[in-house]
Nucleic acid binder design. Structure first.
Length: 321
DNA sequence: TACGTTGCCACTCATTAATC
DNA sequence: GATTAATGAGTGGCAACGTA
C-alpha cells in the first residue's frame, strides 16, 4: 500500500516505550514457566496458543494489555523484567523511501534502533544551518543555575526515591519559592514552564491536579508543568522563563538492548531531549528566554553545545532513511 | 552590614459536610 | 436543592536567621 510513496516525517518517531515492569520471579513463574509466552533471542514476545485459549480466564492474573500488545507484534521483553512497546520497522521500510528531518540525530534512539534491526540508513547534514541555529540560540538564551539545588539528584530514579521524604522535597520547594520572589518577581507564572517527574509535582486527576512534592509550598503551582519528554506542541510558545529539574539518561534496559549504553550516547541523548524541551518556549518565535538548569551535568552539556561552533567534523544532525 | 534564605501567620478560595 | 459552616490547601508578605 505504501510502496509507491516517498514519505517525509519532520520529527524522529518514538522507537520504543516502556510499558510495564514485572518482578523477574513472577515473570519466570507465571508468564514463561506456565507456558503463556515465548521470547526470541531479540527479546520479541510471542503469546502461546495456551494464552490465546485462556487469556480471558487468566486476565485477573496475567495482564490482558500485554496479551494484546504481543498479538500485534509490538511487545518485547528486556532482561526478563521490562516489557516495552517497539515501533514496527515495517512502517519505516515498506514505503519507497522514508526521510526523517531532525535535529541532533546522534542523540536519538532511532539510529541504534535501525542498526539493531539492520535497516539501511543514509545520513545527510547541513552544518551551515546548524551553525546558524546554534548562534541564534546563543544569542537568545541566558542559562542560569539554582545554587541551592546543584547537589540534588534530579535523575528519574533520584526524584522517585525522594517521594515522601518531605524534608528534602521542601528544600526544592524552598528554592523555587526563593526564585519566584527573587528573580521571577513580576513575571506571570503563566509564562513559566517547569519540568520534573510528574509525581513530584502534582497528584489527583489531570482535570483538577493538586500540588505535591516539589510544588508544595513553592508558590509555583500556577506555572506550566510539562513532561520532560514534551515535543511537538506550540501551547507554550509564549513562555519566557524555563526551569529544568531533570538529569536525563537513557533507560538502562533500553540502552543495553540497543547497544547504546555508553557515556557518549547518554550525553547526546540528554542534550537532544533538553533542546527539544527548550524549544517549546518562545525561543521558537525568536524571542529571548531564561533557562534555569540546576543539574551541573545537564547545564554543562547545554553550555558546551551553545559555545562550541559546529564544523563539518561535528557529528551528524539529520538523517535520511 | 547587606543580602539571600527560611519559617510563620493571616488571609483567600475551593471543596465537602451539615442543615433546613 | 439551596444555603451555611467547617475544613484544607495555597499564597503573600514579613520577620528572623545565617553567612560572607
Amino acid at each position: 500500500m505504501l510502496s509507491d510513496y516517498h514519505i517525509i516525517i519532520d520529527e524522529v518517531p518514538n522507537v520504543c516505550e516502556s510499558i510495564q515492569n514485572k518482578h523477574k520471579r513472577s515473570l519466570k513463574e507465571f508468564y514463561i514457566g506456565n507456558g503463556y509466552i515465548e521470547v526470541d533471542e531479540n527479546g520479541k514476545v510471542f503469546a502461546t496458543e495456551k494464552w490465546d485459549r485462556d487469556h480471558e480466564a487468566v486476565s485477573d492474573t496475567l495482564d490482558e494489555k500485554l496479551y494484546h500488545f504481543s498479538k500485534s507484534g509490538f511487545l518485547y521483553l528486556l532482561d526478563e523484567t521490562l516489557f516495552i512497546w517497539v515501533l514496527p520497522t515495517e512502517l519505516l521500510t515498506s514505503c519507497r523511501s522514508m526521510t526523517i528531518l531532525t535535529f541532533m540525530s546522534q542523540g536519538s534512539l532511532l539510529l541504534p534502533f535501525l542498526e539493531k534491526f539492520n535497516v539501511g540508513v543514509e545520513i545527510e547534514r547541513n552544518t551551515e544551518e546548524e551553525e546558524k541555529f546554534r548562534c541564534q540560540a546563543k544569542e537568545l538564551i541566558t542559562v542560569k543555575t539554582l545554587p541551592n539545588l546543584e547537589r540534588f539528584n534530579f535523575t528519574h530514579t533520584g526524584q522517585t526515591k525522594l517521594e515522601g521524604k518531605r524534608a528534602t522535597e521542601k528544600k526544592v520547594a524552598s528554592a523555587l519559592k526563593t526564585l519566584r520572589y527573587g528573580e521571577l518577581r513580576g513575571i506571570d507564572l503563566q509564562d513559566v514552564i517547569i519540568t520534573c517527574t510528574k509525581s513530584q509535582w502534582q497528584k489527583g486527576n489531570d482535570d483538577r491536579p493538586l500540588s505535591t512534592g516539589f510544588s508544595k509550598g513553592a508558590r509555583f503551582f500556577e506555572a506550566n508543568w510539562i513532561p520532560n519528554t514534551t515535543r511537538g506542541t506550540n501551547d507554550y510558545a509564549h513562555c519566557s522563563h524555563l526551569v529544568y529539574l531533570y538529569d536525563q539518561y537513557i533507560n538502562p534496559y533500553v540502552g543495553r538492548w540497543l547497544g547504546a549504553a555508553n557515556r557518549q550516547m547518554s550525553d547526546a541523548y540528554a542534550l537532544t531531549e533538553l533542546i527539544q524541551w527548550v524549544w517549546r518556549s518562545r525561543i521558537r518565535r525568536v524571542e529571548p528566554i531564561t533557562l534555569y538548569i540546576p543539574s551541573p551535568r545537564m547545564r554543562g552539556l547545554f553550555e558546551d553545545w551553545l559555545n562550541t561552533p559546529i564544523t563539518s567534523t561535528h557529528p551528524a544532525v539529520s538523517i535520511a532513511a
